[in-house]
Structures are given as C-alpha cells and as structure tokens.
Simulated scan of single mutants.
Amino acid sequence: MIYAGDMGYGDLNCQNPNSTIPTLNLDQLAAEGMRFSDARSSSGICSPSRFALLTGTYHWRRQHGIVDAFGKPFFLATDITLPQVLKNKGYTTVCIGKWHLGWDWEFKFEATCQPV
C-alpha cells in the first residue's frame, strides 16, 4: 500500500496518459497489483487521515489537527492497526516516511554530539 499526500489522481501515467510526470515504477505496480481508484478520506490533512487509514476509525473520535513532531501520540495501546492485522496474517510490513502520529518512546542512546 502506498499512501501519498499532495498527489493528484492524474499525476500517474497509468491513470492519465497525458501526465508529464514519469511514474514508470508506480505504473508497473499498478499493472501488476491491485489498484483502488475510488476512495474517500475522513480528513484533508495528514495526521487524521493516516490515523483513519491505519485503524479504520474516524479521526474525529480523537482529534482534528496535525500531531506535533514530539507531541502526544494519536494511538492508544488498545488500537489495532492495519499493519498489525497484516502481520498476524503472515505479511511483512514496514513504515517509511514521516507520520506525525506522536512520539512517546524513550531513546536507546542519548545524543553525544555537542553543538559547535
């Protein structure tokens, strides 16, 4: 699953042959995989829409804004996420990118570099 912000429906060549953006790898994924072309988001901003995608829960049940980089997490310990469901079915999952979903963990190693 690829979840991209600020990408228009017509940006991919597989959906718009007149697109001026080269999207060869995404076009190949679309041709060989499953493509959903009619979807809705519960929010037009990042944190709430990601939360809804990952949990299947309306974002407005928790909050409406963007989570600060070191803010309180959106998720509760009891939330079940799509990656958890997929892992339980034998899939390997990975998250790449910025998520703005909160920061509630401790560092394993504190920074040792001093500012110049």
Rank of each mutant, 00 (worst) to 15 (best):
V67Y: 02
N13C: 11
T78W: 00
R62V: 15
T20R: 07
L86P: 14
T93H: 06
E32T: 09
G33P: 09
V67N: 10
E110K: 05
E106C: 15
T112D: 11
A4R: 00
Q63L: 00
V85S: 09
H100M: 03
F109A: 05
A39Y: 12
F70I: 14
M7T: 13
A77Y: 07
K87A: 07
W60R: 05
E106H: 15
P17L: 01
A31Q: 14
V85H: 12
F109N: 10
S42L: 04
V116I: 13
Q114K: 09
H59M: 04
W103G: 01
H100G: 02
I21G: 01
N16A: 13
W103F: 14
E32M: 00
G56T: 10
P22V: 08
Q15C: 14
T112W: 02
C113E: 12
Y3P: 03
K87D: 06
I45F: 04
H100T: 01
S41N: 11
Y9S: 04
L76V: 08
V85G: 03
L86M: 13
V116Q: 12
A39N: 10
Q15P: 01
N25Q: 09
I80H: 15
A111Y: 08
P115A: 14
I45D: 02
C113W: 08
D68V: 06
G5V: 04
L24T: 11
A4N: 03
V85A: 10
G56E: 14
G56Q: 09
K108F: 10
K108S: 04
D11E: 14
L76W: 13
G65I: 03
R35K: 08
N16K: 13
T23M: 00
L76I: 05
W105L: 05
A30L: 12
N25V: 14
G97H: 05
G102V: 11
G71E: 04
N25F: 11
K98N: 06
D27V: 04
S47Q: 01
A52I: 07
R40C: 08
T23V: 04
T23K: 07
G44S: 15
C14M: 08
C95N: 01
V67L: 03
R62P: 15
F107I: 01
R35Y: 13
N13I: 10
T23H: 04
V116C: 07
G65E: 10
P73L: 12
V85P: 02
G33A: 11
A30C: 15
V85E: 05
N18C: 05
N25I: 14
L26H: 12
D79W: 10
T81R: 01
Q28I: 12
V94E: 11
D11H: 06
N88M: 06
P83G: 04
Y3R: 03
P22I: 02
T55R: 03
P48E: 03
C113H: 11
S49H: 01
L54I: 11
N88E: 09
G56P: 10
F74N: 00
G65H: 05
T81A: 06
N18I: 03
I96V: 13
G10K: 03
F109L: 02
A30F: 13
H64M: 13
F109W: 07
A52H: 12
L24I: 14
T78F: 01
F75R: 07
A77L: 14
I45S: 11
Y9E: 09
L82A: 15
S43Q: 05
